[in-house]
Amino acid sequence: MSTNGFGNISIMTRSMAWLIVCFLVLPITIVFAVSVTDKHYLSLPEQGISFQYYEKLFTSGPWMTSILQSFVIACASTVAAVLLGTLCAIGCWRLGNRASDFVRMLMLVPIMVPTIVYALGIYQFWIDLRLLDSYTGLIIAHIVTGLPYVVITVSTALAGFDPRLEQASLSLGASIGQTLRLVIIPNIKPGVISGAIFAFIHSWDELVLALFIAGRAVFTLPRRMWDGINESLDPTMAAVAAVLIAITVSLLCTDAYTRSRRA
């Protein structure tokens, strides 16, 4: 036991920190534990570990369809959000005036407005545009709400980009397109990748929009989980959650890895 006061403080802050970590991580670990239960209802395993619910998940038609749908929607909306968000961030950066600050602020609106309000608005629109319950409809909604993540991460990357590199490229005879492709994009790649990962995760576990503007033909994974929880407390849910978490965590690890390689 340390005798000086500072030692005690550091022990206290440390235990606090660990407490918070447990608070954040324990619910997640419980999901993993429940997913391998040997019982017929949501509970911790008692006699032994069983992977029956994973088997059920990967052989069940509806679950697999939802996973596939979610994956397609997440990929499509990520690609579009990354393209548009990157170009928007670069455009604002190049202009560098008040109007561009305003545009950047505007891009954050989908994060600032509560999703449910946003979803209501989009619902109204989609009725008129006949986009309800369609891939296109949900993809567009996810593009719009995923855009802010890309704009933020790419703008952050651009803040650290030396504008003289752009001038150097132009002075060496590269066109603006070549400069974008050969100099700017490679140097802000970590920001673009982060943006892509966040946009993907955003679409992958988005529920509110999926509830409002889809429901029959398009039935995403979070949507099916929501219904599953409401109707039956089948442990398959825990297996789905575990898969979902595993994918998200591996994406975040990829993000951390690309950042650390850059540094």
């Binding site: 003289r164 001038q167 490229s169 490679p186 140097n187």
Partner: peptide, 13 residues
């Protein structure tokens, strides 16, 4: 025109 910038502005990648 060739240009040498203050701080060189070499492409880091």
């Amino acid at each position: 025109l060739g240009m040498v910038f203050q701080g060189y502005a070499l492409f880091p990648h």
